[in-house]
Structure formats: C-alpha cells, structure tokens
Design a protein around this nucleic acid. Structure first.
Length: 550
RNA sequence: GGGCACGUAGCUCAAUUGGAUAGAGCGUUGGCCUCCGGAGCCAAAGGUUGUGGGUUCAAAUCCCACCGUGCUCACCA
C-alpha cells in the first residue's frame, strides 16, 4: 500500500511540475480520525520548493489519481500533512490473506537468506543461571526468532570457557565441600563459591564414590564433575524457556586450533602490538582507541580480549553476514576494543550488531537483592520460572525495551501471577478457540471457511465498526515483525498484540459470532480465525504458548 | 573524575525513530453477565516528559549545561 501511494504521489508531483527533493515516508497517525496513513513530504519539501507546505500538499492532492475502491478519502490537514483514509474493502481483504497464509502469515523475506549468528547467554558453567541471565537468554532467543521470521538463516550459539581461574576455584570449592562431608573441619574461603549447589555436587560425588576422592587434587575430577552438572542444569533451565542452541562453542578450541596465535601474529604484523612490563599490549590508541590494552599477561595467559577477537574472526570465516552479540551492561567496556582490533585487521565490523541490555534489579521483601554468583544471594532463573511460569518469565523480560533498568518485584510477580499481562493475550486466544468449538457444535464447519484457496465466506458482509477495526489491526502484523527485526526491538510485538487482543475483546462484546444468519456468522468466524492466527503467530515469535483452553 | 545507558501518571513501562490532542497495565473510583469463556468490556480520576537553555514549521525524542540512578573504567571474564 505504501509503495502504491508513493508512486501515485511521485506521479502527481511530476504532473504539477514539482520535484520531490525528499523521500516520501508514511506513518500511522496517532489520532484515528486523521486517517489510516499520513505523509509529511509536503512539510519537508516546502522549503526547497519555496512554497507553503499546505500549498504543496493541496496541489498534489488535486492531481492525485488513486483507486477509490482502496482509498476512500485524501485530504490535507494541519500544517500540511496529507492523510489517507482507506476503504473497508481494503481492510477486510486482510482476512483472506491471513487465512490463506495461516501459520506463515507475518513471515517476510526482508533478510533475504542472510546467514546470521545470534550469540547469547554465553555464561561460564560456574553456577546456575540467574535472573540476569534470563533477560539475556529470552531476549536473544526472541531476536533469533524475529530474524528467522524475516528470512534470515539463523544459528544460535553459546560461547563458554571451561578453563581459567574461575573454573579452578569452582573445582576447589567442590573439593572442600566434599571434605566437609567426610567430616573434616576446615576454613571455607570467602572468595570461593558459596552456593548450595556446590554442596549438592559434592554430595553426589560422595553418594557415588564414598571417600575414594579424599586425596584427589584440586584440579582433578571435582572441576569436571562441577562443570558437567552445572551445564546440565543450565541446559535444562533454558529448555524450560523453550530455548535451544545450535552450537555450544568452547573457547578452548581457539587455542587448540592455533587461532589465538594467528591473531597475535596478525596484530604483530600490523605493527599494533608492543611488549611492556612482561606483557603484550594491543596498541589501540594507534587506531582510535582511548587507551592501549593488555592482550597477553606477564604470566603468558591471554586476557579475554584475545579469544574474543579470535572468536569473531572465526564467525566471519564461517560465513556469517550478520553477527548479533547480546550481553549485559557489565560488558559495556569490553566490546569496543574487540571491534577495534577486528577493524584494524581488515574485517568489516558493520556486520556485527552488539545489543546491550541493562541489568535486572530484583526486589524481594521490599529490598534490593544484589546478585553475585559467588555469594549465594541470588535468585536463580529456575526459581523464577517455578514462581510465575515460563510464559510469564519470557513475557516480562520481553515487555520492556532492553535499554531500561528492569525492576522485577518477585513478591509482586508471585502474588499477581494470575493477573499477569500475559494472560490477557492468552485469554483472547483461548476465547476464540472456545467460540470455534461452540460454532462447530452448532454445525458450522470452520475448516471449510478457507480450504484449498477457496473461500467459504463473504468478508464484505462485515460492516460494523468493531469488525473493521479488528481486521485493520490484524493486517498490521507483518509490518510490526519487520520493524522488530530492523530495530532489534521485540517488545514492539507485545505492544501490537495487546492492541489486537483489545480489538478482539471489544468486537466480542459488541457482536455475537454464532448467530442464525448463517452467512454473516461464517464471515465473523473467518474474522475470529484470522485473529487467532495472528495471536498464535505472535506468540510463536515470543516463545509463549497459545492455549486452546485456560 | 572519564565512558555507556537511563530519568515519562502513585508503581511498572509505551510512544510508529523529529510529527498533529504523550498512551497501556497494575492500583484507585463508578457502571456492565437470561446470551459464543466476566482472566473480559465501558467510563472517570491521574502529566509543566528530572531542571534550565538551544536547534525548526514541529522536540519525550536531536545539541549544550546541571541534578539524579545503574553499569563500567584490570595483566577478572
């Protein structure tokens, strides 16, 4: 529709001897009575044309030729907006389109098969996932969904490191807890992992092997067992949220295949490194960075930057045309160095999209709970799912723009679990399902409304305001999905679906669907089916369930 | 102190990326079930968009200053 209007406007401009020095863009006016679509090109072009905005608009409208069965009214308003009001016929045509496309309605080829990687969660296996990881996980998975719906070929990837100091401490924490189970009195260091899950792992080892491990060294089986159990927990937690990864990428492989060395060599060859105080530095200041950074410590161990750079080079080498990295605001200072190094090695960093989400602040008993994996005072993602359910967890994390600091009041979430906003949407879906069941029990065949490309209903029988409004809302879905993809903001889909649910409930309260006038009933059933389809497709993207009954 | 992000109704957040009268949910107040699901609908109250300047036809949105909050400034990841 936008393309059509644009071409007509360009034609009209030409006919009246004006050129368009600006792009013609459309938007939906906030106020319904202004029309269905609006453009401000006259306001933008006025200066260039040395005319009043309203005159430009007026002239174009006068010479505009538009199919009257699609557009009912065109007028000039305010300082020079041109408003278009569409016909009911146009809105009702959405119903046919939705029923025809079914569960693929909303898909597009915006991404044109672009090979895309979404890297998210990427938590090292040192403890259970926390609420903070939850935001990352749910957001990342949904971004991946949105990109898939817009025609990207997506790989979901989890990057982790099971080597290094953190993991050594983890293993030793388990060892000490194991010793405690054997009855040994000891001082458990404050900077070790305090969580009860460490005790659980130690207990499992004891249950299986008794005291056979009492002389096992810190580096031995304790660490391996801890990693294995914790990873299994992480995987299970993610699965509860319907999150599945295609690849778990181990940082170690970058060392084993010599990729780390290659990066050092490449940076050296580019003259971007120097040695100082026994460490190797990346000369970031030479390529626009604010300060130089260490890439190899004086101990000979690389800092996190080096594997990160190598990992991203691997992403490029593997052929990803779009690389989406998702992490929390605590990593805000780390990625510029990495991008800088990639760029100076000749890689196209435009392909990398870094999405940073702000922290989740947990309130419990009216107090802020500071989260730390090492200290045991964190709320796990599993607990949160137990309290409010997987659908609500996903929905809550997706409702808000990732740029906001999210306040999550656990007590409130628990208490209000039945009045959660997610239910408003799911209720609309379940209600439609119920209507369809009822209609079938009254002898209607909803399956026959649209079968094999043949319509079994007449949408032009729908004339009520609530019917038109609902059809209008439903037609906006593909555009919203595309907007969510281009802006990387899935919360737009939630706002949209709420509007759809609202229009549906309004329609439902104003008009009965299953009525004696058979043809009208069938048309309304088709409208209901279309609404159900849009809701279900939206839920699919968000990763929440579409219940037939509640 | 530097960098990044944020500040919108009592609370949690939106606002089509610079558009026309700033919107939802929760909470508050008042209505609506002979009827396909009342987990719903309708209505009301609630705002100087942190403050002060600037840019233009138009600013919650862009620029500057200040106030406040979070994250971050490692040879930890």
């Amino acid at each position: 529709m936008k393309d059509y209007l644009k071409s007509r406007i360009l034609l009209a401009l030409e006919k009246s001897g004006m050129s368009a020095p600006v792009d013609i863009l459309f938007e939906k006016p906030k106020i319904e009575s202004y029309g269905d679509l609006s453009t401000n090109f006259a306001l933008l072009a006025a200066k260039e044309l040395k005319m009043k905005p309203r005159d430009v608009a007026q002239k174009v409208v006068e010479t505009l030729e538009i199919d009257p069965s699609l557009v009912e009214k065109v007028d000039v308003a305010g300082p020079g907006f041109v408003n278009f009001k569409f016909s009911n016929k146009y809105f009702l045509s959405f119903i046919d389109d939705i029923l025809e496309k079914g569960d693929s309605f909303g898909r597009s080829n915006l991404g044109a098969g672009k090979k895309t990687q979404v890297e998210f969660v990427s938590a090292n296996p040192t403890g259970p996932l926390t609420v903070g990881h939850g935001r990352n996980a749910v957001f990342g998975d949904t971004i991946a969904n949105v990109l898939q719906w817009t025609g990207h070929v997506v790989t979901r990837e989890y990057y982790f490191n099971n080597a290094g100091r953190q993991m050594r401490v983890l293993g030793d924490s388990v060892r000490l807890r194991y010793k405690e189970i054997l009855g040994e009195e000891l001082q458990f260091p404050e900077d070790y992992y305090q969580g009860n899950y460490i005790r659980d792992i130690a207990q499992h080892l004891y249950d299986e092997q008794g005291d056979k491990l009492k002389n096992e060294p810190a580096e031995g089986g304790f660490k391996e067992r801890a990693e294995q159990e914790i990873f299994e927990d992480i995987r299970k937690t993610l699965e509860r949220l319907t999150i599945k990864f295609d690849i778990f990428y181990n940082e170690n492989s970058l060392y084993e295949t010599g990729k780390i060395k290659e990066v050092i060599t490449a940076l050296e060859a580019a003259g971007l490194t120097y040695d100082k105080e026994g460490a190797k530095w990346f000369k970031a200041t030479a390529v626009g960075g604010d300060q130089d950074k260490v890439i190899v410590k004086s101990t000979g161990e690389p800092t996190y930057r080096l594997p990160d750079i190598a990992y991203h080079i691997e992403k490029f080498r593997r052929g990803f045309e779009l690389v989406v990295d998702i992490f929390g605001s605590d990593h805000i200072a780390t990625y510029p160095d990495v991008l800088l190094a990639l760029k100076s090695l000749g890689h196209d960093t435009e392909k990398v999209k870094v999405l940073i989400h702000q922290f989740v602040t947990i309130f419990q008993n009216g107090e802020v709970v500071k989260m730390s994996t090492r200290k045991a005072n964190f709320i796990t993602l599993d607990e949160l799912i137990d309290w409010v359910g997987a659908d609500a967890v996903r929905f809550f994390f997706l409702m808000r723009n990732i740029g906001t600091h999210l306040n999550f009041d656990v007590d409130l979430a628990k208490k209000q679990s039945e009045e959660n906003p997610v239910f408003y949407l799911q209720y609309a879906h379940a209600r439609i399902a119920s209507i369809i069941r009822f209609a079938e029990s009254e002898g209607f065949s909803t399956g026959g409304l649209y079968a094999g490309g043949k319509k079994g209903f007449d949408s032009t029988l729908l004339k009520e305001k609530e019917e038109i409004d609902l059809a209008k809302a439903l037609g906006g879905f593909p555009e919203v999905v595309e907007a969510a993809a281009t802006t990387f903001e899935p919360h737009r889909i939630i706002g949209y679906l709420q509007g759809v649910a609202e229009e549906f409930h309004r329609f439902y309260h104003a008009h009965r669907v299953v009525i004696p006038e058979r043809q009208l009933a069938e048309s309304r059933l088709a409208l209901c089916l279309a609404a159900k389809t849009v809701l279900a497709n939206g839920f699919k993207i968000l990763g929440i369930s579409a219940p037939e009954k509640m």
